[in-house]
Design a protein around this nucleic acid. Structure first.
Lengths: 193, 193
DNA sequence: AATTGCATGTAAGGAGTTACATGATTAA
DNA sequence: TTAATCATGTAACTCCTTACATGCAATT
């Protein structure tokens, strides 16, 4: 019975490309799935041990430039576990968006701070769009014909679409905050105090 | 020094409306912020105790229809803590989107399952759009002139915008999966095994 | 000589869910 | 009488991050 934990599959997935060390896995995740999934060392190294104990990965001592490292490769059982997980419906995780929560109670917020946060949010999303465009160019360029490429482009497309929609939303919302129709300020009348 | 935990502020925020019991808070969150923030009883009741110990909320025994309940109201200190938090920039939480992770490694997935999941995802987002429209109608109708209404509509607008963008993306992606350009299937050649 | 990158891990703790336990009242 | 709703909580557990500890190799 495979454990339900999701982070392990992120690791198994990375190992479909080639055998990797824990350090390699971290780096790969950061430059590939980071915008929708990431792992910390505190997850990766213990997970690798557990996966090895279950026979889903196999570790071998290796050496590169004089440094010792442990390379892990996917076993047949590991690949089977990954495929099974890929076929199972995702477990929905309760969403947690701190910016939206702050906006929801925005009437009580210092108005300048609210604007500042929305602007910062919009800028982050704009920055994302730029980065996605750059990544896409690199993907189309250096991974032409790679069997994984279409799937990687699909996740990028999702990121771009959501980022674009949120930028538009943030602009609309900033405009509305400026309109006189919105009562604002932490000094608003308070029925309780 | 206020604790950094975010869930407590969701509770303090709910109490800006009126004094509520733990049960009330749960219900309110579920019918208001649930699409971007929710709390379980396991969070709410212990948090209320801690907040009371810190003087941020004050509990009073109350009775309604013969049932005993503890009503909590926001204190002046609690309001100040909420306002301070509202003014502070959100701490970014590492994103975790299981569907995108599965799509990223989609080459190894059973093709039918991948399609099924994308369709289910699109349907969920469509359903959300419908629900958001209904909620918006109710908000405009029964909360006209309410000081919180503009902010609540803004969070709704965000939800609608993101849902619409993801529906479009899912449709695009499904079409692309059907195109012959995408190599597919768990039986794809595997350089390791 | 100092800094950055490679490389592997552990410890502690916070956050958050799930499942359970309990019991009263109201509506069907 | 049965089910749903109101109402309050606890225990166990998982997941995950943060911070720390260590040390070599290559670069500046």
């Amino acid at each position: 019975m495979p454990k339900p934990g999701r982070s392990r599959y992120s690791i198994l997935g990375a190992l479909t490309l080639r055998p990797l060390s824990g350090y390699d896995i971290k780096k790969f995740l950061e430059e590939s799935t980071a915008h929708f999934w990431s792992e910390s060392y505190g997850q990766i190294y213990p997970a690798l041990r557990a996966l090895e104990a279950e026979g889903l990965v196999a570790g071998e001592r290796s050496e590169r430039a004089g440094r010792l490292r442990r390379l892990f490769r996917l076993t047949a059982a590991g690949r089977a576990a990954l495929v099974a997980w890929l076929g199972a419906p995702p477990r929905p995780r309760p969403p947690r968006d701190e910016l939206l929560l702050k906006l929801f109670y925005g009437r009580h917020a210092p108005p300048a701070a609210l604007r500042r946060q929305l602007i910062a949010y919009r800028d982050r999303q704009q920055e994302r769009r730029r980065r996605y465009r750059a990544i896409e160019a690199g993907l189309r360029d250096r991974f032409a014909g790679h069997a994984d490429q279409p799937y990687w482009l699909m996740t990028l497309d999702c990121g771009r679409a959501v980022a674009a929609a949120t930028v538009d939303w943030a602009d609309r919302t900033l405009a509305e905050l400026d309109s006189a129709a919105v009562e604002t300020g932490a000094a608003a009348p308070d029925p309780q105090s």
